[in-house]
Design a protein around this nucleic acid. Structure first.
Length: 526
RNA sequence: GCGCUCGUAGCUCAGCUGGAUAGAGUACUGGUUUGCGGUACCAGCGGUCACACGUUCGAAUCGUGUCGGGCGCACCA
């Protein structure tokens, strides 16, 4: 809708124009301050320019009014345009919101180490990524959701060792010393128990079998992670294992040519040539590759798979890592602008205003599964999607348990359910409702209709700007408008019943579609 | 010390490709339709948009600096 208006104005004024929604709807549906930017160029007052532009605007079926007010040009959409668009949306629910994009995008997110269940910080990145995924797919993008499994390196060795220690402690009842960095928690006890069944308890003392134990365990842990994600309605298309990538190492090294060099018996990458503070080691003296080496091969593979664009979502504590990965992609001959790294910040939880207690049994972290159990996946997803992902967030779990307007997810669902109820009460058939036209509506109804029809703009804006919080904001405001309208006007038995119900259908469509972007299924009854 | 990032109402946060009177929820005060779900609605209270300077017709939004918070500065991932 907005695109069509913008295109029309561009043609009319022969330049790009800024379109905005006036705060005061009595000004019209859209407005543009274009006259202000022309003022200097034309050496005329903005008010005069706006006057001229507005009056130069001939009859167009899209608008019922084009007026200049204090230098702004206000545009009012025509009833027939709005009705036509609303009818189209109701009949084309699946593509309402699509802009027909077909770019291939690789979206990599979560990628938590397979050494333990997901905690609340992972959950934020997971929700952010999955929301982007849904928004992008709605727009038409061909997006692959990928999980990079870090199943190589120290943390995997540590996992094997941790299970051995856990097995000795909890199964063989030996006294063991746990170094601080070791993995602990309920899931480790379970894993040790299962390992005892599968391999026999002697594996807990066999140092040579640590690796075997670790490789077995990481698959088990990955199962736990996949289940945690599924509980939040998050699903991945592909899993790429880090350890499987190293076969390709020699070829990738060759591809980088003299961007890598040997010094001090190690191999380095010249990342300082691309905005990094210094060159980085990729292979240590003993021949073991660093984490960066794996990421280089992985990103090479990503680019070779032929996507138009790549998005990575990382924890904000990894932001210093971005320049070296970008440098590597340049050295591999790819455009690092096609690699976009988004950050997801820390989360701190409160309960009744007090810091949320970390789970001792899980090893002093707050588990994602605990929070889902406590407030539900919908509430978790909504709250995380509501805030900018790159700023720290603090929230109180108890506020999400309330069943009134203070709980936004409840409030939005209630708006949707109200519409379903009233549709059920009406004696009009769906045909009668659909055949009515949305004309002669008062200002409140018009405002509600317009807001509901803005959904596609919100989806596109939220995805393109990577600011997923725009969707929850929009849904809250649309729900509020619906509740107010419902309070102010009677529907059933009124002369306008059919057209008001048609209007409500559009609102329900946008609420439902918007919620689905957040991975939430709208409720028909509360 | 260097880099990134943030600082908006008592609290949690939107708004940031510069534009009409800075918004929402919460908290607090006070109200509401003999009617479709009062699990709703309305009003009031509450702001030097951290501070300073600059750019501009116009700055919460852009730039520089200061102060304050977070994160990072590994051959860990």
């Amino acid at each position: 809708m907005k695109q069509r208006v913008a295109a029309l104005l561009r043609e009319q004024f022969e330049r790009d124009v800024v379109l905005e929604k006036p705060k005061d709807r009595s000004f019209g549906h859209f407005a543009t301050p274009v006259a202000f930017s022309l003022a200097k160029e034309l050496r005329k007052s903005p008010i005069v320019i706006a006057e001229e532009l507005a009056s130069s605007f001939g009859e167009d079926p899209m608008f019922s009014a084009v007026e200049s007010v204090k230098g702004y040009i206000n545009l009012r959409l025509s009833e027939s345009f709005l009705d036509e668009y609303a009818s189209w949306a109701l009949e084309n629910e699946e593509i309402f919101g699509s802009i027909g994009e077909d770019e291939k995008i690789l979206l990599e997110f979560v990628s938590a180490n397979p050494t333990g269940p997901l905690h609340i910080g992972h959950a934020r990145g997971a929700v952010y990524g999955d929301t982007l995924l849904r928004l992008g797919r709605k727009l038409g993008f061909d997006i692959t959701a990928e999980y990079y499994v870090n199943d190589a390196g120290n943390q995997i060795d540590l996992l094997g060792l941790s299970i051995q220690l856990e097995g000795r402690a909890s199964i063989l009842n030996e006294k063991v010393e746990y170094p601080e960095s070791f993995y602990r928690g309920e899931y480790m006890t379970d894993l040790a128990k299962e390992a005892a069944d599968v391999f026999g308890t002697e594996i807990f003392h066999d140092e040579s079998r640590q690796k075997e134990l670790a490789m077995w365990a990481k698959d088990k842990v990955l199962d736990i992670i996949v289940k945690d994600l599924a509980d939040a309605n998050i699903h991945f298309d592909t899993f790429v294992s880090e350890s499987s990538l190293y076969d390709d190492w020699d070829r990738v090294m060759a591809k980088m040519g003299n961007s890598v060099y040997s010094a001090e018996d190690k191999i380095w990458i010249r990342s300082s040539e691309h905005d990094d503070e210094k060159d980085r080691v990729v292979v240590r003296e003993d021949g073991r590759p660093t984490y960066l080496a794996g990421d280089i091969v992985y990103h090479n593979q990503k680019f070779e798979r032929g996507y138009h664009h790549h998005i990575n979502i990382w924890g904000a504590d990894h932001h210093g890592y971005i320049p070296r990965v970008k440098a590597a992609t340049e050295f591999l001959g790819y455009d690092s602008k096609k690699l976009e790294v988004l950050l997801s910040q820390m989360v701190s939880l409160l309960k009744d205003g007090e810091p949320y207690k970390m789970s001792k049994r899980a090893g002093n972290v707050i588990l994602m599964s605990d929070i889902i159990e406590e407030i539900g996946a919908d509430a978790l997803r909504f709250i995380f999607a509501s805030k900018k992902s790159d700023t720290p967030l603090e929230f109180d779990v108890n506020e999400l348990k309330k069943e009134d307007s203070s709980n936004p997810i409840f409030y939005i669902n209630y708006a949707h359910a109200r519409i379903q109820t009233i549709l059920g009460k009406s004696e009009l058939s769906m045909e009668e409702i659909m055949q009515s036209d949305l004309k002669g509506l008062n200002a409140d109804a018009d405002g509600l209709l317009f807001e509901a029809l803005l959904l596609p703009e919100v989806i596109e804006d939220a995805f393109v700007s990577r600011q997923v919080q725009k969707m929850p904001e929009y849904l809250k405001s649309l729900a509020a408008r619906l509740h107010k309208f419902y309070y102010d006007y009677r529907i059933i038995g009124e002369e306008d019943e059919a057209k008001l119900l048609k209007l409500f259908l559009v609102v329900a469509l946008s609420l439902r579609t918007g919620l689905s972007m957040l991975g939430i299924t709208a409720k028909d009854r509360m």
